Simulated scan of single mutants.
Amino acid sequence: MSTKWIAVANHKGGCGKTTTVVNLAAEFARNGLTVLVVDLDPQANASMHIGKKHPSEVPVTCAELLLSEIEKLPQAIYDDTNIEGVSLIYGSLGLGRAEDDLKDDTPRPSEELRTKLAPLEGIYDVVLIDCPPSLKLLTSNALAAATHLIIPIESGSQYGLYGVTDLLKHVNKIRRVNPRLELLGALLIKHDERQTVCKLIENAAREQLGKLIPIKIPTSTKVNQAAMAQTSLHVIDRTAKVTREFKELTQYIMNELNMKADVK
């Protein structure tokens, strides 16, 4: 099976990008797939959640990988993480500086991540890329490396779709260097069918983005509990509605992308 490279991107903060990446990674791994998370966010929240080390203790993070020779790749991958079956390339504060250096020092600055990760094609079943809340060069690198894109939308906020037109323009621009990039769809986060604002955001997202993922992630205190415990929702409460929805989301993606499961 060829590797599926899935970027989770939205330049609006607090819309559930990291929550989506972490719990998708855990569910993919539970289905017997080999999984790598690439943390491209300088805040490194995915790394703090999944990783056993603090990003400041890691010698080769995404920042060093982007600016180094490709030989650094094996040093950047950590297989021993808090979530069984999920490997990690750490993010770090250094990504902010790396973004500036890429612009100055590389001829094709938006394609460095794709180049550095190219040897992993066929080694992992799925690579999930957690993007920063911006449309700058780090997100461009993620989109240029990805085969598929998920756009989390905060359904419970009237500002949930703020700037989505700019995001779509950016995606279309990146498709010039990465024509294989496909939109898996918008993923509604913190969704409550009973709230008018959620219904309005759902309709507007369908109209603006053209494709909605049919699974909707509800608001739940379990999300913060899992983050604090540095584990997945499945470990915190496998019967919770939010856990079940992430399980369904994983199955939906696997069906869409013809990924075969070996459930553990």
Rank of each mutant, 00 (worst) to 15 (best):
R175A: 03
D79E: 14
A29P: 03
A29Q: 10
P214S: 06
E245N: 11
L233R: 03
S92H: 03
C62F: 09
D104H: 11
V37R: 06
N45K: 08
A63T: 11
N31H: 08
R176C: 03
A76F: 01
C131Y: 09
K264I: 14
D192F: 04
K190Q: 07
S87L: 09
H148S: 14
K17F: 12
A146L: 00
D166C: 04
K17R: 14
I50Q: 07
R108K: 13
L93R: 12
K52A: 02
D100R: 13
K260E: 15
V164T: 09
Q75G: 04
E202T: 05
H234L: 08
M48R: 13
V223H: 04
S110A: 13
D125T: 03
D262C: 07
T239Y: 11
I215T: 03
Y78P: 05
E154H: 04
L188S: 01
E71H: 11
K116V: 08
D130V: 06
K12S: 09
L128W: 01
T81E: 13
I201Y: 01
N82I: 10
G14L: 04
L143I: 02
I6Q: 06
S157Q: 12
A205L: 01
S56A: 12
A229M: 15
Q158A: 12
A98S: 13
K247L: 06
Q43N: 04
V263L: 13
L120S: 05
E84L: 13
A142P: 03
E57A: 13
A145K: 02
K211N: 12
N258E: 15
L73E: 10
G91C: 03
R114Y: 12
L209Q: 00
